[in-house]
Every structure is written in C-alpha cells, then in structure tokens.
C-alpha cells in the first residue's frame, strides 16, 4: 500500500439553484479502501457520488485523482475525453439499476468485452476468454455468455454489471446502492462476492447505500450524510458501534434486529 491517497476531495459543494445538493465535503480515499456514504434519500449522497465520478460538475471545491502514472490530476479540469477515458479504464460505476449500466440488447459476453474493445483489444478469442473468466468470477455460468441480460434475473444482471466494470482492472469503483432492489438472499450473495473482489483486487470503492448492514460488511470507513452535509465520519465499526452525532444515533437505533 502506498502512502499517498488515490483521491483527494476538498470542500466539494453542489447547489441546485438555492437548494443544497451536497456541501463542503472533504475527505481522502486511499488505494484499496472502501468508503461507505450513508444517509436517507435526499441526504446528498448520490449527488456527491455523481460529482466524484464527474457525471455531475460541482458548484465549488476540488477533487484530485492520482493517475496510474503517479501524476495528480484535477478531475474538474480534465477534458471530457480524458474523463470518459478514465471512466472506462481506471474507474467503474455500478448503478443501482443494472439496466442503466448494461447494454440490454447485446450479449453478456459483449457487455463484459466492450471495455476491452474500447481500449483497443482487437482479438476476438482473447476478448471472449477474458469474458468467460469474468463471468465465472461473478458466478455466471459460461453457457450464458451469449444470452442477453434481458434474460437474466436481477441478481445476475447486477453481477454482470460488476464484471463489465471490473474487466479493465480499475483502481476505483463507484457504487450506487449496489444491492438495492434485490431479494435478501440475493443481496447476501452479491455482498459476499463484492467483498471478495474488493479484497482480491485491492480496489478502492465509494459505496453509496442507505443500508447500514451493507456499509458494515463492505466498508472500512464511513461518512454519514444529512441535508447535504457530512454529520459524522470515521471507522465503520466505530461509527456504527459508538455513534456520536444525533442523526447517526437515530439511524443506528432504527435498524431492525432479526
């Protein structure tokens, strides 16, 4: 592990007119670290994620990313071409709804292979072999490689989306409610898979979720957001076991015990 962060975010704010999307968010993310951003709907966590992934430009503040060559780049000063290149090589984005992150009308294999082709791989056999490998890593049978994701269950689609994102070996993955909308048993399998992949690949990830159990299982660090602001942050188990902010205490005490 290096002694330099991967991402440095400083005083990031996004306003929609006079309404606050997120305000004055500052943090560093290190390689291999998973940061959970929790809060209820409208707390600004998705706005923050969209700003960080440059899908949305913030109103003020900076975010710098350490590129593979070690150079620090200011995300919001990069050209769109550079940002899009980063997005399909060194980054991943896992959407809550897999249909937003997959091409539903092309086969599973092509969904996984697209990023490879986008970065110039022109060998069909190699692309397909990589796709097979990734499908197996996300526990999708090889014989489904030519099926379209339309024919997949919700859990399979989500796993396919993950494979599609990880195939280029990104260093940073953004996830927006990755287990939202899935059955509990399917969720558990997906979480376990994500946890394994994140550890094995040394991925850094920013996971937006309203589910504290997801945060506990996946992340080492956590930020709690309310009304666009970070009200508490720290080690995930510290925040969950010894919540300090009134809002965090409310969140933690609202968890249903099974």
């Amino acid at each position: 592990m290096t002694d330099e962060p991967l991402l440095r975010v400083s005083a990031l704010s996004k306003f929609y007119g006079s309404r606050v999307g997120c305000e004055n968010v500052t943090f560093d993310l290190w390689p291999g670290e998973v940061l959970a951003v929790v809060g209820e709907s409208g707390s600004g966590k998705t706005t923050l994620l969209n700003c960080l992934s440059t899908r949305l430009l913030p109103s003020s503040g900076t975010a710098s990313y350490r590129m593979r060559d070690g150079q620090w780049r200011e995300l919001y000063r990069m050209s769109e071409a550079e940002r899009r290149f980063l997005m399909r090589t060194d980054w991943g984005f896992v959407h809550q709804n897999p249909a937003d992150g997959l091409r539903m009308t092309v086969s599973a294999g092509a969904n996984v292979g697209e990023r490879l082709m986008a970065v110039g791989d022109r060998h069909y056999g190699r692309i397909r072999a990589t796709a097979v490998d990734w499908l197996s890593r996300v526990e999708i049978d090889e014989d489904r490689i030519d099926d379209e994701p339309r024919a997949f269950s919700g859990g399979m689609r989500q796993r396919l989306q993950i494979a599609r994102n990880l195939v280029t070996g990104p260093r940073l993955v953004f996830m927006d409610e990755p287990t939202g909308g899935l059955d509990v048993s399917v969720q558990a399998r997906l979480l376990d898979l994500l946890r394994g992949l994140v550890t094995d690949l040394g991925l850094a990830a920013i996971v937006v979720t309203h589910d504290l159990a997801v945060a506990r299982l996946l992340s080492q660090r956590m930020m709690v957001m309310k009304d666009g602001r970070v009200v508490e942050s720290g080690l995930t188990d510290r925040v969950l076991d010894d919540p300090r902010a009134p809002y965090t205490q409310l969140l933690v005490s609202s968890i249903l015990q099974v």
């Binding site: 086969s107 092509a110 697209e114 082709m117 986008a118 397909r128």
Partner: peptide, 30 residues
C-alpha cells in the same frame, strides 16, 4: 447500439469506437 444522437456525436468527436467492435463481436458470437 446507441440510439441517442447526442451520444453518438460525442463518441465520434472523442473517437470512442469500441461499440463498433461490440457489433462485430456479437456477429461472431452468434
């Protein structure tokens, strides 16, 4: 593969042509 004209124009502008090979990939797969 990409119905949005705004997106295809951007792809041409940025020379993002991976999608074209997706189409050929699908051909070989099928």
């Amino acid at each position: 593969l990409e119905p949005r004209e705004t997106e295809t124009r951007k792809m041409h502008a940025l020379e993002e042509y991976g999608l074209m090979h997706v189409k050929l990939y699908e051909d070989i797969a099928k």
